[in-house]
Design a protein around this nucleic acid. Sequence first.
DNA 1: CAGCATCCTATGGGATACTG
DNA 2: CAGTATCCCATAGGATGCTG
Lengths: 122, 122
Amino acid sequence: MTDRRGDLFSVECPTRHLLDRIGDKWTSMTVKLLAERYPDSARFSELQRAMPGVSHKMLSQTLQRLTADGLVTRRVEDSVPPAVHYALTALGRSLDEPLAILREWAETHMSEIERHRASAGR
Amino acid sequence: MTDRRGDLFSVECPTRHLLDRIGDKWTSMTVKLLAERYPDSARFSELQRAMPGVSHKMLSQTLQRLTADGLVTRRVEDSVPPAVHYALTALGRSLDEPLAILREWAETHMSEIERHRASAGR
DNA sequence: CAGCATCCTATGGGATACTG
DNA sequence: CAGTATCCCATAGGATGCTG
């Protein structure tokens, strides 16, 4: 009951909300690329090429979400085939800091987790 | 092509793997509780009471995963109604550090994101 | 080039009920 | 008390095709 959309909005925890935003398949990679590799700005197709496996639709959706959340700006260059430039906002850049720390932890420890999983059977 | 299970295993990025592990609905909260509120250990039902909205099944599943990943230990006390104690491993505690930083960011900035979303019209 | 709409499948996760 | 199994729905996300 309560709501049926099976959530309750995490009751309180802001971290849950954050993970709902960045825990999806492509968001963290997008933020990382915009922070590290394209600190100025990147075009849609640049990002797409930099993210092997992303579908057109998902990149589009990810960027829209980031833009709506105020983490990314979208600038349309009025050329003949239109060029769209995406860049992190200040808020987006500030988010990259904790994410970078998480990345570092992941790079250091994920292999250990994988080993555990393997020996724990599945 | 390639694989059909639509993944490619994120190609390289350890952060994707990590977010696949901790980005789900209950994992980060569980780690937080075991780190901050139950630094010694917690019983299943304690955790359940501390996590409003979690279903029996999901908590069970979450703990199994954490245990398999080597982030949590599971100790069965051989009493008449069996008591099971969960605690973070050293690896689990080390993961809580970057998570704590993420939590702090979330507490500081999530309201800003919510505002953006609201004014961006969902 | 960038974006939208449609379709379809796989998965996450809740409810419920049964077991030691 | 803790765990497992079943059922069922909502969502994520991939593929494809059309538009300016």
